[in-house]
Design a binder for these strands. Sequence first.
DNA 1: ACATCCCCTTAGCC
DNA 2: AGGCTAAGGGGAT
Length: 309
Amino acid sequence: MKLQLNPATTPFNLAQTLTCGQSFRWRKLGAWWAGIVHEKVVKIRQADGTLNYQTIPEESDSRFIESYFRLDDDLPEIISQISSDDCIRRAVRSCTGLRIIRQQPWECLISYICATHKNIPAIKNVISNLSKEFGRRVTFDQHDFYTFPKPSALAKASIEQLKACKLGFRADRVRETARIIHEQQLDLESLREASYESARATLRSLPGVGPKVADCVLLFSLDKLEAFPVDVWMRRAILEYYSDHFPPAFIERMKEKGSGTPRDYREIRLFGQTYFGRYAGYAQEYLFAMIRRQWTTKETSISMRRPYK
DNA sequence: ACATCCCCTTAGCC
DNA sequence: AGGCTAAGGGGAT
């Protein structure tokens, strides 16, 4: 199947979008990217304005891809809304076409509960283990893929089985959350219609869901583009680019403390949301991508690279 | 090689 | 009430 995009009205960069750390299920197979979306294996590649893709089982409706990659977001309009200064404009320019992915809430929720206190490679590893153990195998082009486990499968799993997937202390939280979703005490899809604040409060009632995990699930799966997740990278970005917007004492504390308190979290989130506006989540993704690139290419100032002693 | 530190945090205890 | 701490295991340096 083929999807033609006009770069002027619908800028999109597939590789950028798949590698910026928001989803953990994609892998490179030669020139193609392959992953699982809504129980289907998807193989996709981009040549400028053209997206080529195949799915197993066959899906003829292109809205499936358009929805997953949020091609319905008016990115030029969003970018103009978040462009509060030169810094964010530079971030946007450096990863043109980066889009937020519309993941499935259930998978997104479990993924980010598992992500607690783990780096990206380790998160991918756990999600892959879980899917292999509790998902369904689908073979495509001689490669094995596994669908994401259903709530019932994780609810029924033993703690030992979950720990064997390298979940560690997250095992209880994952199983308990799975049980609540499986028993339909909480309907994730309905949160799409709720306000940001109300959906956030509901998510926070689940074990393993703190402010950061809630904001990630809201942004990456529940269409709450005003969500502004604050993690260690966002704190580094704030320190590097936006320290002028905070009291000096606050900045000093951030430099010394690795993690920060729930109050600090709220402080930074509210800054992001008021400063960048209703598409703050997009600003967060662009800043996130920029600070990570700066960090890995060692362009960041020396003082920034040794914030914790 | 090898040690040491860090990681897209949460929850439970004072 | 808010600050401190423990909690896998892999990756980076």
